[in-house]
Lab assay of single mutants.
Amino acid sequence: EEAIQNFKALLSDMVRSSDVSWSDTRRTLRKDHRWESGSLLEREEKEKLFNEHIEALTK
């Protein structure tokens, strides 16, 4: 649960536009030290959280 919250915070800070792809964003996020705290999450979970974040940005 904490890993999810940390990853959501990372997305909020780093992803402000809804027209970015997961693969491009992932490359950028990996450069942030907080990426490692999400290592407990599966890749699919990270992508799902990313997609939810993008959906929220479009509303």
Rank of each mutant, 00 (worst) to 15 (best):
T58G: 14
L40A: 14
M14C: 13
K8L: 01
W22N: 02
G38D: 14
E2S: 09
S21F: 00
K46R: 11
G38P: 08
Q5L: 09
R34K: 03
T58W: 01
R26H: 11
G38T: 15
M14S: 10
D13E: 12
T25H: 01
K46Y: 14
S12Y: 05
S37E: 13
S23T: 09
L40I: 12
R27L: 10
D19R: 06
E1A: 03
K8G: 01
K31R: 11
E55N: 11
N6S: 13
R26G: 06
E52I: 02
R27E: 15
V15G: 00
K59R: 13
R27I: 08
I4S: 06
L29E: 03
R27K: 14
K48A: 12
E47R: 09
K31Q: 13
T28I: 14
N51P: 04
V20K: 08
D32C: 04
W22C: 02
T28F: 10
A56G: 14
E1M: 09
V20R: 07
H53M: 00
T58D: 13
I54P: 05
L40D: 13
D13S: 06
A9G: 08
L10G: 05
E1K: 10
D13N: 04
L40K: 13
K46T: 07
E1W: 01
S37R: 07
S23W: 05
L29Q: 02
D19N: 09
E55V: 12
A3C: 04
R27F: 07
K31Y: 06
L49P: 04
S17Y: 02
E52Q: 10
K48D: 10
T28G: 07
A9S: 13
D13A: 05
S12D: 11
D32Y: 00
V20P: 01
E2G: 06
I54Q: 09
F7G: 00
K31N: 13
F7V: 00
R27V: 10
D13C: 02
L11T: 03
L10S: 03
I4T: 10
R34W: 04
R26F: 14
S37H: 14
R26W: 15
T25K: 05
E1H: 04
R26Y: 14
L49Q: 03
K48H: 09
F50Q: 05
S37W: 11
I54M: 09
N51H: 09
K59D: 10
Q5H: 10
S37I: 01
S21V: 07
G38S: 15
L10H: 05
L57M: 13
H53P: 06
S23D: 14
K46W: 07
F50A: 04
E42I: 09
H53R: 03
D13R: 02
E44H: 15
H33K: 14
T58M: 08
D24C: 04
E44T: 11
S12K: 15
R27W: 03
E47Y: 01
V20D: 05
S17H: 14
D32S: 01
W35K: 05
M14V: 12
K46E: 13
A9T: 08
D24K: 05
S17V: 07
K59W: 06
D24N: 08
S39M: 12
M14R: 13
R34T: 02
R30H: 08
R30L: 12
T28P: 01
L10I: 06
V15Y: 00
R34L: 03
A9E: 12
F50R: 01
R16T: 15
D24M: 05
E42G: 15
N51E: 08
F7Q: 05
D19M: 03
S23L: 07
K46V: 05
L49D: 03
A9K: 13
L11H: 01
L40Y: 08
D13H: 03
T28N: 12
D13M: 01
E52R: 05
N51M: 10
T25P: 00
A9C: 06
T25S: 10
T58N: 14
G38K: 08
E55D: 10
F7A: 05
H53C: 00
E2N: 03
E2T: 10
W35G: 11
S37N: 13
R26P: 01
D19A: 07
F50C: 02
S12F: 08
R16L: 12
R43A: 15
F7C: 03
K48G: 06
E55H: 06
V20Y: 07
K46M: 14
A3M: 07
L40Q: 14
W22Y: 04
Q5A: 08
L29K: 01
T58L: 02
R30Q: 15
M14Q: 11
I4M: 05
K31T: 12
L11G: 06
T58I: 06
T25G: 05
K48F: 04
R26D: 12
R26I: 15
R34V: 05
L11W: 00
S18P: 15
R34G: 06
Q5F: 10
T28C: 12
S21W: 00
T58Q: 11
Q5V: 07
T25E: 06
G38F: 15
D32G: 00
S17F: 03
L29R: 00
N6W: 00
D24Q: 09
E42V: 10
L41E: 03
Q5G: 11
R26E: 15
R16Q: 13
S39D: 12
E2Y: 01
E44D: 12
D32R: 00
W22S: 04
H53F: 01
E52P: 01
T58H: 09
R43S: 15
K8Y: 01
W35V: 03
D24T: 10
L49K: 01
E2D: 02
K8S: 00
E44V: 09
E55P: 02
T25V: 15
S37T: 13
T28V: 14
D19F: 01
R30I: 07
F50E: 06
L49C: 05
L49E: 00
E47K: 09
Q5K: 15
A3S: 11
D13Q: 08
A9L: 10
S39H: 11
K8E: 01
S17R: 12
R26M: 14
L41F: 00
K59E: 06
A3R: 09
G38E: 11
K46F: 13
L49S: 02
L57S: 08
S37F: 07
N6A: 10
E44L: 03
I54E: 07
D24Y: 02
I4C: 02
R27C: 11
L41V: 08
D24F: 00
K31H: 13
E2K: 11
F7R: 03
S39V: 10
E55F: 07
K31W: 05
S21G: 07
D19V: 02
S39K: 14
D19P: 04
A9P: 02
G38C: 15
N6T: 12
S17L: 01
S18W: 03
L11I: 01
R43G: 15
A56K: 13
S21Y: 00
Q5R: 13
R30P: 07
D32A: 00
A3V: 08
R30C: 15
V15K: 01
V15F: 00
R43H: 15
F50G: 04
D19T: 09
H33N: 11
H33G: 12
K59M: 12
W22P: 05
Q5Y: 08
E52W: 00
N51Y: 12
L49N: 06
R30S: 14
F7W: 03
F50P: 04
H33C: 00
K48N: 07
W35N: 04
T28Q: 15
A56S: 13
A56D: 11
N6G: 05
E55W: 03
R30A: 14
W35L: 02
S39G: 14
G38H: 10
R16D: 09
R43W: 14
W22A: 04
K8N: 00
E44N: 11
S21N: 12
E47V: 05
L49H: 02
A56M: 12
F50T: 03
D13P: 00
W22G: 06
L11S: 06
D24G: 01
M14F: 08
S23I: 10
R16I: 10
G38N: 13
A56C: 11
L11V: 03
E42R: 15
K59T: 12
H53V: 00
N6Y: 01
K48E: 09
T25C: 14
L49W: 00
